[in-house]
Design a protein around this nucleic acid. Structure first.
Lengths: 152, 152
DNA sequence: CCGAAATAGTTGAACGCTCAACTAAAGCGC
DNA sequence: GCGCTTTAGTTGAGCGTTCAACTATTTCGG
């Protein structure tokens, strides 16, 4: 059964290629800055942010994985690294003996607090400074739609 | 010298988090699909696309790196893999004895041709189908601005 | 020309992610 | 209560990327 491929039209092509170039450049830049200034990749920074905003600075592994859009395996490996760095600790979950709770340490919080200003500056410089307020609004709507479409 | 951090306002926060969630979900999905259907990550697919569109299906390593937004090191490793898979060959550059030319093989072209319809469908399903034509246009302008801002 | 600096590309180690396989504990059906 | 299935999380192998160090060639200043 030969189904015709709906190829991308020229506008879609341009959009897709520009999107790829921009998002790769943006994430590469932020990742490099964060690695240089805080000694961690952006994905780890995000985990610390989520933990820092959770009540008691702690979260079940599954909840942390979901909040960060991470697979369980990825999170296990990541938390192992973060624990080795002294930024996160694991504790047994009191209500489910299968469970583990990841907990941001004071040292982890301090590291995050030290890294945050530089990182926010980076996000500003590399993303928001280049866009008009209207474009920021458009990007928010587009991203929320896509996130919903992809994960919801 | 204490410089106040220009923190993100709530709208920027929302935008940034939605963008992160969406772009990660999108690339993860496309990467998984391409790995499953074509046995290669998205980054390698992009390299084959660039080569397939170049005159003689060949490009200097540096030019390929730039066209794909890749570091030289990344490209060296990638081309080594692609060569082992039989999809790319390396040749000496006739005009510069330091240089190498990467060349898409017939087998590489066939693999790309086989993978393309499924991948394009994936891009459509996961990206364009969720957006209105106006949003596609907005995303194109935003991405082109950002790509320019980040690399230009 | 000649030496210094720039450019092209590769390499290996360290690290992060994916995938599949695994252990252990809940939950569910009857 | 007793299996069966589902859920929580970990593990190790394999792969892709980064970074710094390295070789080889070319370019440029004088």
């Amino acid at each position: 059964m030969a189904v015709m491929t709906r190829w991308l039209d020229p506008d879609e092509q341009r959009t897709w290629r520009a999107y790829l170039a921009a998002s790769r450049a943006l994430m590469d830049t932020l990742d490099r800055e964060l690695q240089r200034d805080a000694g961690m990749p952006h994905a780890y920074y995000e985990l610390l942010v989520v933990l820092s905003e959770s009540p008691g600075r702690r979260l079940r592994m599954s909840d942390l994985a979901e909040a960060a859009g991470s697979s369980r395996s990825r999170l296990s490996h990541a938390v192992a690294r973060l624990e080795a760095a002294g930024w996160v600790r694991r504790e047994e979950c009191p209500t489910d003996r299968r469970g583990q709770v990841a907990l941001l340490t004071d040292e982890g919080f301090a590291t995050l607090a030290a890294a945050a200003p530089g990182h926010v500056e980076g996000v500003r410089r590399n993303l928001f400074d280049a866009l008009s307020p209207a474009q920021v609004d458009q990007l928010r709507r587009i991203s929320e739609t896509l996130a919903e479409h992809l994960t919801g």
